[in-house]
């Protein structure tokens, strides 16, 4: 249908308004130039280059797994913040707050969304790694970024692990007890680890149950009040903070190492 010259669509009118132009400088992306500018001018989208080789936009090549990992991280941050409104990390309240969350919040699926997205993120990150391995994308010049990715995968699992304790139910404390019991066997710095008895002054052991790496992780001799607070802080602040730094490096290096991998 031919368009009347004088009649502009709502989008076009908006696109020429001062407000729109102040936000998106190039107007509604229609021409090739405007479309490139839509990417370059956006702080979020300019993570991407303006143009890509054809294979890079094929789901069959990338499986979308890297993007979905990031999406899940964002989703988990948002649902996590909402959960923090209701949750108090103390032995007294933690469990009842979770009950409260299930029973009192109308239509509440935030906890479900958070938990299932967390499990899904572990899987999606593994699949991302599988894709990168199968396409040989870790090969030079992307060796360093593969290493960053391995650390991010480790952080993903550690994030999931620290979150596992927070509901403070039987599932939580025993899974974390099993997991953190390993730390007592850490060579030299765990009290049941090889070499720990070497770190002694005379008869006084420096590494014992009240001073080893497990004690530092748990804030006590067993999983208790201090552990809950520690894991809460690790889960909500410390590990996401570290993960965000590594993610920034990871994304930056994709571009700096020549963009998405592809055959030459």
């Amino acid at each position: 249908m031919a368009k009347d010259d004088k009649q502009k669509s709502l989008l076009e009118t908006l696109g020429e308004s001062q407000v729109w132009k102040s936000i998106i400088r190039s107007g509604v992306p229609k021409t090739r130039r405007q479309r490139m500018h839509a990417i370059l001018g956006s702080v979020f989208l300019h993570l991407h280059p303006a143009r890509l080789p054809k294979h890079a936009v094929k789901v069959g090549y990338t499986w979308c797994m890297g993007g979905l990992s990031f999406f899940l991280f964002v989703l988990l941050t948002i649902t996590g913040i909402l959960l923090m409104f209701y949750y108090r990390p103390t032995v007294e309240y933690a469990y009842t707050d979770i009950i409260d969350l299930t029973e009192q919040v109308p239509l509440g699926i935030m906890r479900e969304l958070h938990r299932w997205a967390a499990h899904a993120m572990v899987l999606v990150v593994w699949l991302h790694m599988l894709r990168v391995f199968m396409t040989g994308s870790y090969k030079p010049p992307r060796e360093f970024n593969w290493g960053v990715g391995v650390l991010l995968m480790t952080l993903t699992m550690f994030l999931s692990f620290t979150g596992y304790l927070l509901p403070w139910d039987q599932l939580a404390i025993w899974a974390v007890t099993v997991g953190t019991n390993m730390a007592r066997a850490h060579p030299f710095i765990g009290h049941e680890g090889p070499g720990a008895s070497l770190l002694a002054i005379g008869d006084i052991n420096l590494v014992h149950m009240g001073s080893d790496i497990r004690f530092a992780l748990l804030g006590g001799r067993f999983v208790g009040e201090a552990t809950l607070l520690r894991f809460y802080v690790l889960h909500c602040i410390a590990v996401p903070f570290i993960a965000m730094i590594f993610m920034a490096v990871h994304f930056w290096r994709i571009r700096k190492d020549g963009g998405i991998s592809g055959p030459l």
Binding site: I39, L68, P263
Partner: peptide, 28 residues
């Protein structure tokens, strides 16, 4: 390999990739 294409023949990220990402995000 099937992934190979002419280095000069590129597609625009807006809309070709942004839409795919958006759809993947919605579906997930």
């Amino acid at each position: 390999p099937t992934e190979y294409n002419d280095p000069d023949d590129k597609v625009l990220v807006w809309p070709d990739l942004v839409y795919i990402e958006f759809i993947a995000l919605i579906l997930f």
